[in-house]
């Protein structure tokens, strides 16, 4: 079995375990504000980092290309309250179009 399969299965089983654990834990954990704060802030930090690396990283290099323009279009659409799918498709079309024109 490949490493990728092992990671897919292990991460999937762990994901279920995380959900299950929430129902087993004593409810007073919620009253510990630091635990609740870290759990709330983690997705924000991870998603922020993922936006940055997915937009500007290429392997170990920082590359500014068509992706940056595409994410900019996505941000404008999000400001206009466009739905998720519209944002994602518009970003893909922007990047594909710019590349077809030979930029990025």
């Amino acid at each position: 079995m490949s490493m990728l399969w092992i990671a897919v299965i292990a991460a999937s089983v762990l994901s279920f375990g995380q959900k299950w654990l929430g129902y087993q834990a004593p409810p007073d954990i919620l009253e510990r504000p630091r635990i609740a704060r870290v759990t709330t802030l983690l997705p924000i930090a991870l998603l922020g980092a993922l936006v940055a690396t997915q937009t500007a990283a290429s392997g170990a290099e920082i590359v500014l290309d068509a992706r940056l323009a595409a994410v900019g279009v996505g941000a404008v659409l999000l400001l206009l309250r466009a739905p998720f799918l519209v944002v994602v498709i518009a970003a893909a079309v922007t990047a594909a179009g710019l590349r077809a024109l030979g930029w990025g």
Binding site: V51, A66, V71, V87, A90, A91, V93, A96
Partner: peptide, 14 residues
């Protein structure tokens, strides 16, 4: 070529 890398970045932003 299909802009799928940019689509992933936009998905995270959304």
């Amino acid at each position: 070529a299909w802009g799928l890398d940019a689509a992933a970045a936009a998905a995270f932003l959304a």
